[in-house]
Design a protein around this nucleic acid. Structure first.
Lengths: 336, 336
DNA sequence: CTGAAAGCGCTTACAG
DNA sequence: CTGAAAGCGCTTACAG
């Protein structure tokens, strides 16, 4: 293992000078820098990360905290975070956290105490561990939350425009002539559920439709709740001609019910989802949905966090990214 | 930030004694240990990981290397690795690696040079970077591969019994009365593709069926290739009554083709997959498939690696885990 | 532009 | 059973 000492000796300089070259500090003569660089290359020198961290007091890593059943979602976010972090020279430490367990939450704080990370990114619903966030804030440890529950404080977060996404999807269905549009609500404990519901309701109102509770079903974002919701809505006295499930898993459940009932989709029933996960295009017929900019959200969150770590960002930034309507085969004109 | 010095002072012992308690070394008087433990708790002491690593020369971390399009798969593996590693006191460093890029491969070696990890787990097809493996072996850095391409050397790996899984599925379809069973082959560069094909062929042979090339289609494990394969097989002169796609993505593609063609599944066509990813039960009808023990494979690989790191395992272990036949709604008796 | 010294917070190897 | 010393490989703060 070659160390900074070996390189210094070979280049005929002090270790401080080698350190300067490694860290791209100014005030090194070009000729000296070249000599050091040459020595490093020849010896295959790579700095010892632990030594660096210990001496500098910085971890050079960010913590990625999640508490989640949907790995489909988590892994999409993770990908964005890993990419951005790597390119900025940060490592990513992945940390599962059970928000209902105090001990598990404390482990997040331990990551700071043991100097493993400099800051955090929280994915929902891990951001609901209020105690942890308070502690981090008190300790001056920066963090950014992705689509958090709590948005009233002045803490940094990034989120998709759930309200507008649902609004646009509903308007699209209305434009297809649908008037009885069923809606399956997501997990009530997530703020996005409420926002998607409101977007749907606002679009109906704007078109002079009244908000009919009989057309709404309370789900929880799971495939199984989509199954239940689909059955409930389609077995009613005045079944909808379109069902907008507020995520793709539930929409896939509704689609299965449609198949079971022998309904042609979209001939007799249009079905729409939300999120645009892979599942959306792998079912038959492929689902019309609202694409959440998950990757962009992850990149934005990481960008903001690293800006905070470098002291470039001081104000807690709150960014809302637009969604995109993705029209596929599961929606069509209202049957006459 | 409380350090080992603070704790030592408070407990009235030397730092070496505190170190002994932290590392659960023997030869500490019970009374002393209790005093130190108390001091640690009172001060909220957590050891500085970097200092520990630097002093001990051990990273206490394993590298998780992947090069993959399928995050569904990667994240399942990752989950198992994270769990097992955490419980054994190891961190997991996630490292993407483009096997076709020499520079990217070198970064894997850098993780060792910078003392960030003690060993590696490779997921397919990242294990094909032969140069990296050779270098690691030369440097005495342990690694375990999950379902690797190369299995002739005496390097450690874990794998599922692909051959047997495909054999059992085919036998199951034969028992349902099917005689014309189509097969969609996976990515030819992956050894699992070949093994699944052989399992299929062996079952046919055992039932006195001859191996008909017209019933095979060369896919690549993607949904799109399932679409193509389904169309090719079903449009032939003597279409199969069952199609066994060698992974779930391709099976979902075949299912979509069946819907397009207006075929009843499983009334007119049985469809089976392999892997048992979430998609398999979220399509309609839910897919009969072969469950790969992905989680168990990940746990086993991590277990073996940690055994090697601790010097408990010396011989390179090679473990094959059984698969499970999962019967759902997409398969049924051969139509008469 | 360059360097000598001190120190980051632990563990190792050795002594008692 | 306990501890004093040295050292892991860097960076910081300071001096020149």
């Amino acid at each position: 293992m070659t160390t900074i000492d070996n390189v210094a000796k070979r280049a005929g300089v002090s270790i401080k000078t080698v350190s300067r070259v490694i860290n791209q500090e100014p005030y090194v003569a070009e000729e000296t820098r070249a000599r050091v660089l040459k020595a490093m290359a020849e010896m295959g020198y790579v700095a010892n990360v632990s030594a660096r961290r210990l001496a500098s007091g910085r971890a050079g890593a960010i913590g990625f905290v999640y508490h989640n059943p949907s790995w489909q979602y988590i892994s999409s976010v993770l990908r964005g975070v890993l990419e951005k972090a790597r390119e900025s020279g940060y490592e990513t430490v992945i940390h599962p956290c059970n928000v209902h367990n105090a001990k598990s939450c404390d482990e997040v704080l331990d990551l700071v105490r043991q100097r493993s990370v400099d800051g955090f990114i929280f994915t929902p619903p891990s951001d609901v561990a209020a105690h942890v966030l308070t502690q981090l804030q008190k300790a001056g440890v920066p963090f950014v939350r992705i689509t958090p529950q709590e948005r009233t404080s002045s803490r940094a977060y990034v989120t998709a425009d759930d309200h507008r996404g649902a609004f646009e999807m509903t308007r699209y269905l209305l434009n297809l002539g649908h008037r009885r549009i069923g809606f399956i609500v997501g997990d009530p404990s997530q703020i996005a559920s409420q926002q998607r519901l409101e977007g749907y309701q606002e679009a109906l109102l704007l078109c002079g439709q009244r908000d009919d509770a009989a057309l709404q079903y309370q789900g929880d974002f799971s495939y199984a709740s989509g199954l239940r919701g689909g059955r409930a809505l389609l077995q009613g006295p005045m079944p909808p001609t379109a069902i907008f499930a507020s995520n793709d898993d539930m929409a896939a459940g509704v689609l299965t019910v449609a198949h079971e009932f022998g309904l042609d989709v979209p001939g007799q029933l249009s079905i729409a989802g939300f999120d645009n996960i892979d599942l959306a295009w792998q079912v038959y017929p492929a689902l019309t949905t609202v694409a959440q900019p998950i990757h962009d959200l992850a990149v934005a969150a990481t960008e903001i966090l690293i800006g905070m770590l470098r002291g470039e960002v001081t104000e807690p930034e709150q960014r809302t990214l637009p969604t995109t309507l993705i029209i596929r085969a599961s929606t069509g004109p209202c049957p006459v």
